[in-house]
């Protein structure tokens, strides 16, 4: 009954002779909050970038509502408009104000008129608490604020899935909380999210599903209660011991 929004099948990715992802299989359902955890270099970010077609797959396929989007048959721009992405380095458009950042995609990609786009942008900027800053440019606000704007920009496209690529890794510790709070509120609103993160508390307390990756494969996955309290794999156990003791 439950339809998979995203389905990754036998996905492999190699940069030259270096295999980064090896035969990855997993699915994302509506309303899932999936955290992908693992050591640096385990292929987490590459997986996310493959899903958003920022990297080309070496082999395998990615199904979006059952349709293969990886073979160039579907216009990648149309697909990306439905799958939002939030980056580690925010990637806000430096030549635009906060408001324009949240409007441009709606106007040019979704062809929404200016007034409606502004309304929607303000709605989502309100949601992330950045509405008072609509006239600021990205270089005038802090990292945490930038990331909240970036989330609003992605939300303004009203995507079906939101991908987060280490959204708090480039932030000062005191700004991590404000971004995580926004992500938590999205989870409460039943937004479907796929989050690559080093924030174990988020993975444990907020997500509905946790994927542990090591050396380009999915070592273990399951509900957070199982992964965090009773991991089956030895590597998962060791990884968690290492990061949770810090």
């Amino acid at each position: 009954m439950s339809e998979h929004i995203l389905e990754v099948r036998h996905l492999s990715k190699a940069f030259g002779s270096h295999a980064v992802l090896k035969d990855i299989d997993f699915t994302v359902d509506k309303g899932d909050v999936t955290s992908i955890i693992g050591a640096s270099g385990s292929g987490k970010s590459t997986l996310l970038r493959c899903i958003n077609l920022l990297e080309t797959l070496t082999t395998g396929e990615i199904l979006f509502h059952g349709k293969d989007i990886s073979k160039g048959k579907i216009n990648p721009s149309e697909y990306r408009a439905k799958v939002g992405m939030v980056f580690q380095n925010f990637n806000l458009f430096n030549n635009m104000t906060v408001l324009a950042n949240c409007m441009i995609g709606q106007q040019k990609v979704s062809k929404i008129n200016k007034e409606e786009a502004k309304k929607r942008a303000l709605y989502y900027l309100n949601k992330v608490g950045m509405a008072p800053y609509i006239n600021a440019r990205p270089d005038q606000i802090s990292g945490g604020q930038k990331q909240r704007v970036a989330i609003a920009r992605a939300l303004a496209m009203e995507p079906e899935v939101l991908l987060f690529d280490e959204p708090t890794s480039a932030l000062d510790p005191e700004m991590v909380g404000e971004v995580l709070d926004v992500m938590k509120s999205l989870a409460r609103d039943k937004m479907t999210m796929l989050v690559v993160t080093h924030e174990m508390s988020f993975a444990r307390d907020v997500s509905s599903h946790v994927v542990y990756m090591a050396d380009g494969i999915i070592e273990e996955e399951g509900p957070p209660s199982e992964i965090f309290t009773n991991p089956k794999s030895l590597r998962t156990r060791e990884f968690l011991k290492r990061v949770l003791n810090d």
Binding site: N52, L54, P76, S77, E78, Y79, R80, A81, K82, G84, M85, F87, N89, F90, N91, L92, F93, N94, N95, I104, G105, K108, V109, S110, A150, R153, A154, M157
Partner: peptide, 30 residues
């Protein structure tokens, strides 16, 4: 221009012309 600017534009569904016209070239011009 930071490659992140291209990726940010792509990620919200802009095609090459839109990315160039609205995001990259205004910054290039400056």
């Amino acid at each position: 221009i930071d490659p992140g600017q291209f990726e940010g534009a792509k990620a919200i569904g802009m095609n090459h012309w839109q990315t160039m016209l609205y995001v990259i070239l205004p910054q290039t011009l400056r």
